[in-house]
């Protein structure tokens, strides 16, 4: 079985901990190594804060783009795509083509690359 671990935390505190863009705490490094060693690792990424998020939905055949993360609570996270494109424009474009954009909302969040120490 595959499981997704969704990491939540108070962003303002988490960001206060960041020293630079390459930072990965020794604890994370160790955790990643343990997962890899156990053959359980399938992928994982740090996300840029919600201030870099954009929400896309398609209504009346038009893509509606909103600055900011998905904030409502009536809808639930039902799946995800991780994509690699040159800029936010292509990411929004792909999000608006996703069938789920017709009835739900898609939050688009850039991956925040980390390098192991």
């Amino acid at each position: 079985m595959q499981f997704m671990l969704l990491i939540h935390g108070d962003e303002s505190q988490m960001n206060a901990l960041e020293t630079d863009d390459t930072g990965m705490s020794p604890d994370y490094h160790a955790f990643n190594q343990a997962l890899i060693k156990a053959g359980a690792m399938r992928g994982g990424e740090r996300l840029r804060p919600t201030s870099a998020a954009t929400t896309v939905r398609v209504r009346d055949k038009k893509a509606v783009v909103l600055a900011g993360p998905y904030a409502e609570t009536q809808e639930q996270l039902g799946g995800y795509y991780l994509i690699d494109v040159p800029s936010l424009d292509e990411a929004i474009d792909w999000a608006s083509k996703c069938p789920a954009a017709q009835f739900g909302s898609i939050e688009v969040r850039p991956i925040w690359p980390t390098r192991p120490q």
């Binding site: 804060p49 201030s51 870099a52 998020a53 954009t54 600055a67 040159p86 800029s87 424009d89 850039p110």
Partner: peptide, 17 residues
């Protein structure tokens, strides 16, 4: 400052559509 950080971090392109 926040809006400029957003241009950088969200990957907003400098491009004529």
């Amino acid at each position: 400052v926040r809006a400029k950080a957003r241009i950088k971090e969200a990957g907003i392109p400098f491009r004529v559509p």
